[in-house]
Write a protein that binds this DNA or RNA. Structure first.
Length: 433
DNA sequence: TCTGGGGTCCTAGGACCC
DNA sequence: TCTGGGGTCCTAGGACCC
């Protein structure tokens, strides 16, 4: 039995999640915006056809959207995350070995399925996901992850394939690869593409046939791996158990510029508190954080400032209060009073890059934290926030959620239909008299 | 007026060690 | 003027991904 990997992904995933709960959105252009309603990060086929590009700032296309009747939504991550979990639950009923690669993409191991049955299974999977979750998907199949990704790309661009493309057969595969630009390959970005083109590589077939030596010279081992994968030799195993995070970040653009130290301190404290919350969910901890904030590169003519500093803790922790203290220390260390025009800060964040499981982390000889107390307090706080909703209990320094002037904007967000009881859709049934 | 956020992997180069 | 040969570890920066 030849190895086979399928990549299944949701079409215009965020937009499709919105469509599941509003049938009127079918067939009309839909886009979903990034945080602060900044950029278009998901577009349906109809929106793409209007020329709306990935990452396009919303203010530039607002008129177009109004004119063309594009339905515009803020990101509703609670909804998308939950829909993603539902889709993966369906995948697992078809193939037990699933790697959840991103919120809208999963790799499935189909090695145990006979080659001639794979396409049919994939079609069945698509139909079932559609029926059970409402989400449209496409499936690509190949002997390696890279080829499965490529197959998925083909499935999405050729309607005749009805959402499934199988590149298992070497001859069929070769015929496809000559017609696809090398830039479509997973792992070949802009910079790599330019180097490849200098080597005379234009199509995926060219890349597959490139000698390993020049490939390695131009693109390091990453490029060599891609070529092996294109030739059908797997270098990227299925990661069935999610790897432990190495780092974690909480960074946000403000909905309005910040000039006051107190506001900046509050924002950074809120980020530190949320970072602690994320770490606690996975039992992870950190003994150093980086705090940064900066003005916007789009504010031409304004004074620019960007600063970042690393704060070390006596021992690893995920206690929000300890992280807040460290983060505010970072502000104290870097804050500068403006002399003339104040700096208008646009974004701040707290980052860690060295996560360790709290239980395995060494204790400090001096300055050790009281983990018993801290653990109990944090557990109580997390329990309140789970039960009564996020932001019900926050550390004082992070400020009450509704009083945060810098908070991210989500002005066009749909209800969190599947994760908030207060927001589930209601149905009215009129009985005949 | 309004321009996202969160990850991973790889390499080169410096510091340091014996 | 001449001045070895290995290691390891860390960091910054680049590239890529969704």
């Amino acid at each position: 039995m030849s190895p086979a990997i399928a990549l299944i992904d949701g079409n215009s995933f965020y937009c499709s999640c919105e469509r599941v709960f509003d049938p009127k959105l079918a067939g009309v252009p839909v886009i979903v915006l990034s945080n602060n309603d900044g950029c278009a990060i998901a577009r349906t086929a109809e929106a793409k056809a209007l020329g709306i590009r990935m990452g396009e700032p919303y203010f530039k296309i607002r008129d177009l959207c109004r004119r063309e009747g594009v339905r515009v939504f803020s990101s509703n991550y609670a909804l998308y995350g939950d829909m993603s979990a539902r889709a993966n639950a369906v995948y697992r009923t078809f193939a037990p070995d699933v790697e959840v690669y991103s919120i809208d993409e999963s790799f499935l191991d189909l090695s145990d399925v006979r080659e001639r049955d794979r396409v049919e299974l994939a079609r069945d999977l698509r139909a079932t996901v559609r029926r059970w979750t409402g989400l449209p998907t496409c499936v690509g199949i190949g002997p390696t992850k890279t080829l499965a990704k490529l197959a998925n790309h083909i499935a999405k661009s050729i309607p005749d394939l009805r959402g499934v493309c199988d590149l298992s057969d070497e001859n069929e595969r070769a015929a496809w690869l000559v017609g696809i630009p090398a830039g479509e390959v997973w792992g070949v970005g802009r910079a790599s593409l330019a180097k490849l083109q200098a080597l005379g590589v234009d199509t995926v077939a060219d890349l597959r046939d490139l000698d390993l030596r020049p490939a390695r010279k131009a693109l390091t081992v990453v490029g060599e791996r891609i070529i092996h994968e294109l030739r059908g030799r797997a270098c990227l195993p299925l990661e069935l158990v999610p790897a432990r995070w190495q780092g974690c970040a909480m960074t946000r653009s403000f909905s309005a510029r910040i000039t006051e130290r107190a506001e900046l301190e509050q924002a950074v404290a809120a980020h530190a508190a949320q970072l602690g919350e994320k770490l606690r969910r996975d039992g992870l901890a950190t003994n150093q954080i980086t705090v940064f904030y900066h003005t916007s590169e789009h504010d031409r003519g304004d004074p620019m400032r960007s600063t970042s500093t690393v704060i070390h803790l006596p021992e690893a922790t995920n206690d929000s209060l300890a992280l807040i203290k460290a983060a505010q220390h970072g502000i104290a260390r870097t804050w500068r009073e403006p002399v003339g025009i104040p700096w208008r800060y646009s974004k701040a964040g707290v980052i860690t890059t060295d996560l360790v499981p709290l239980a395995e982390s060494p204790r400090a000889l001096f300055g050790a934290l009281d983990r018993e107390r801290s653990g109990a307090l944090m557990a109580a706080m997390d329990a309140c926030n789970t039960r009564f909703g996020r932001g019900s209990v926050v550390p004082a320094r992070a400020g009450l959620v509704e009083k945060r002037t810098w908070s991210t904007k989500f002005e066009m967000r749909t209800p969190r239909y599947t994760t908030r009881l207060a927001e589930v859709p209601s149905v009215l049934a009129h009985l005949p008299a």
